[in-house]
C-alpha cells in the first residue's frame, strides 16, 4: 500500500471512473429516494417535494408495523431453522476427510449458483396441492390404508386430504431456508475448519463427552462464525422480495413486498421510499453489530 499522494495521476485514473459510475448510478439514486421519503404523494400518485416525516409515521402505524414485525419474525424463524440444519452440516464438512471437503463444499454452494427465481420456482412444484410432497404423502397414505386393511381397520386412515403447503408463511420460511443455507454454512464452516482440533481433543482427554465438548468448547470457539452466519441469513431473509412473492400468500407479505407494492400498484413512491430506508437502516444496524463483534473477537486473540 502506498499513499495516494505518491502517484496522484495513477490514483485518479484508477479510482475516478468506477467511483463516478457508482456515485451517479447508485449513490445518487439512494439520495433521491431519501429525498422522496420526506415528500408527499399527490392525488395522481405524483411526487410533491416537502419535508415531513408523515411517511415514516405511517410506516409505524399498526398495519405496517405488523408487516415489519412479521418480516423480522419470519427472518428470525428462518435463521433459527437454517442454523439447526446448517450447523451440523458445517461440522460434518469441517471434520470430513480432506479429499471430501471440497466436494461437499461444492455441493453446498452449487444450488446457490442456480438462478434464485428458478430455485424458488422449483419449490412450487414440490409444495403445491398436486406437488411432489403431497404426492409422496398420498402414496404413503395409500400404502398405510392397505396395511391397515389387512387388519380390517382401513377406516382409521380416512380419506387423504392434501396438505396446504404452498402460498403461506411456512412455504416462505422453507424457501428462505433453502436459499440462504449456504450463506450460514460457509462462515461457520470456515471458523470450525480453522479451529485448532487440539482444543476438542483436550476436552475429550479431560473427560468431557462429545455433547459436552460441543457446547463447552466447539460452539463457544466457533461463536464468531456462528454469529456472522446467522446475522447474514437474518438480514438477507428480512430484505427478501422474490420468495414471498412466489411462495407466499396473503398472510406472508414482507417488508420487501410492501415496498414493491408502493412502487407498482399503489403508486405511493414517497411512502415506499420511507419503508425502503427503514429496511436499509435495519440492515445497517445489523451489519454494524456484525462488524463490531468481528472486530472485538479479532482484537485480543
Amino acid at each position: 500500500m502506498e499513499s495516494w499522494r505518491n502517484n496522484r495521476l495513477v490514483f485518479a485514473v484508477l479510482a475516478l471512473p468506477p467511483t463516478a459510475w457508482l456515485v451517479i448510478f447508485f449513490t445518487v439514486p439512494l439520495i433521491i429516494m431519501w429525498v422522496y421519503s420526506f415528500a408527499e404523494r399527490g392525488p395522481q400518485g405524483q411526487i410533491e417535494l416537502a419535508i415531513n416525516f408523515a411517511n415514516y409515521a405511517r410506516a409505524i402505524e399498526w398495519i405496517h408495523l405488523g408487516i415489519i414485525w412479521k418480516s423480522i419474525w419470519i427472518a428470525a424463524v428462518t435463521t433459527l431453522i437454517t442454523f439447526l440444519i446448517g450447523f451440523p452440516l458445517a461440522m460434518g464438512i469441517a471434520f470430513a476427510p480432506a479429499r471430501w471437503k471440497n466436494v461437499l463444499l461444492l455441493l453446498v454452494i452449487l444450488p446457490f449458483w442456480t438462478n434464485l427465481l428458478i430455485r424458488t420456482y422449483a419449490w412450487i412444484a414440490v409444495l403445491r396441492t398436486r406437488g411432489f410432497l403431497n404426492f409422496g404423502l398420498e402414496w404413503a397414505h395409500e400404502k398405510l390404508t392397505i396395511l391397515f386393511g389387512f387388519f380390517g381397520t382401513a377406516q382409521v386412515m380416512g380419506e387423504f386430504q392434501p396438505l396446504e403447503l404452498l402460498y403461506n408463511q411456512k412455504a416462505v420460511v422453507i424457501g428462505l431456508v433453502y436459499v440462504y443455507l449456504p450463506f450460514l454454512v460457509l462462515p461457520i464452516y470456515a471458523t470450525i475448519e480453522k479451529l485448532d482440533k487440539s482444543y476438542l481433543e483436550a476436552s475429550l482427554d479431560l473427560g468431557a463427552g462429545h455433547w459436552r465438548t460441543l457446547f463447552s468448547v466447539t460452539m463457544p470457539l466457533a461463536l464468531p462464525g456462528i454469529i456472522s452466519g446467522c446475522l447474514l441469513a437474518f438480514i438477507l431473509s428480512m430484505g427478501t422480495f422474490l420468495t414471498p412473492a412466489l411462495l407466499g400468500g396473503t398472510d406472508s407479505e414482507m417488508i420487501g413486498n410492501l415496498i414493491a407494492r408502493q412502487f407498482s400498484s399503489s403508486r405511493d413512491w414517497p411512502f415506499g421510499s420511507a419503508l425502503s430506508f427503514l429496511l436499509l437502516y435495519l440492515t445497517f444496524i445489523i451489519l454494524w453489530v456484525r462488524a463490531s463483534l468481528a472486530g472485538r473477537k479479532a482484537g485480543p486473540l
Binding site: 429516494m33 430484505g239 422480495f241 415496498i259 412502487f263 421510499s273 425502503s276
Partner: peptide
C-alpha cells in the same frame, strides 16, 4: 450488502 429491493426501487 443492501437488500436488492432497496436498490431496485432507488
Amino acid at each position: 450488502v443492501i437488500p436488492e429491493i432497496c436498490m431496485a426501487v432507488a
